[in-house]
Design a protein around this nucleic acid. Structure first.
Length: 221
DNA sequence: GCGACAG
DNA sequence: ATCTTGTCGC
């Protein structure tokens, strides 16, 4: 239907922004916000993109949940095809991400995506799109808010729903990692896993922190 | 109409 | 995200 080839991103051949918005609304209904694991979680992957001139440099890093050791790192580069538009982030980053994930040879159980999941105006951020496209369990982790309000208990509400959680930095009280469901996982489990894979005095989970660093190394060569 | 707005 | 000097804080 919208995607016959999991790791190929084409937005179901949508061409206009209005059509991509319509796709997001359709996909939002397919997001599964409960845990459905068929195996225990041993490793977690993070994927991030950086830019230089007209090239997107994307890196994915798989890290062992227990000892934080790097299991595998891959990178790829591709031409930027679309502009960055708030709430339509999938236009710019989904293709580089899907292409890079194809390069991984080791397995992992959870994917961390550098952007929001259901904490999105149409409940369909980048992490949801990637999750549905690949059928992977995904969690959205963003460094700033696109919508919603942080409550005193750190949960983030939007449109009368609790859609996310602000994992505040120990050091910078201003900074936080905004966690939300991407696909096939619950919010409580998402929070638990992100906390578990985040080092002390850091607010970005290790797989994303290393992927971010690696992608920036790639674009400076 | 105006402002806000993941990376 | 990226471009960028000095500057604030641990």
């Amino acid at each position: 239907m919208y995607n016959t080839n999991p790791y190929e991103s084409n937005y179901g051949n949508r061409t206009s922004y209005a059509e991509v918005i319509k796709l997001q609304k359709e996909l939002a209904k397919k997001v599964i916000s409960r845990d459905c694991f068929d195996s225990s979680i041993r490793s977690i992957c993070g994927v991030d993109v950086s830019y230089k001139n007209n090239i997107a440099y994307c890196s994915a890093v798989i890290i062992d949940k227990e000892n934080f050791k790097i299991i595998e790192m891959v990178s790829s580069e591709s031409k930027i095809k679309n502009p960055y538009i708030p709430s339509l982030f999938i236009l710019r980053e989904s293709e580089p991400i899907l292409q890079t994930l194809k390069l991984l040879t080791k397995s992992f159980q959870i994917l961390l995506v550098d952007g929001h999941g259901v904490l999105h105006p149409r409940r369909c951020g980048l992490a949801c799109y990637v999750g549905i496209s690949t059928n992977l369990h995904t969690i959205g982790v963003a460094k700033s808010l696109l919508c919603g309000n942080v409550q005193s208990n750190n949960f983030v509400n939007h449109d009368g729903e609790t859609l996310g959680y602000a994992l505040k930095s120990t050091n910078n009280l201003k900074k936080a990692a905004y966690i939300s469901v991407g696909h096939k996982i619950s919010l409580p489990t998402s929070i638990e896993l992100v906390k578990m894979i985040t080092k002390t005095n850091q607010f970005v989970p290790e797989p994303l922190r290393v992927a971010d660093k690696l992608s920036k190394e790639q674009n400076s060569k």
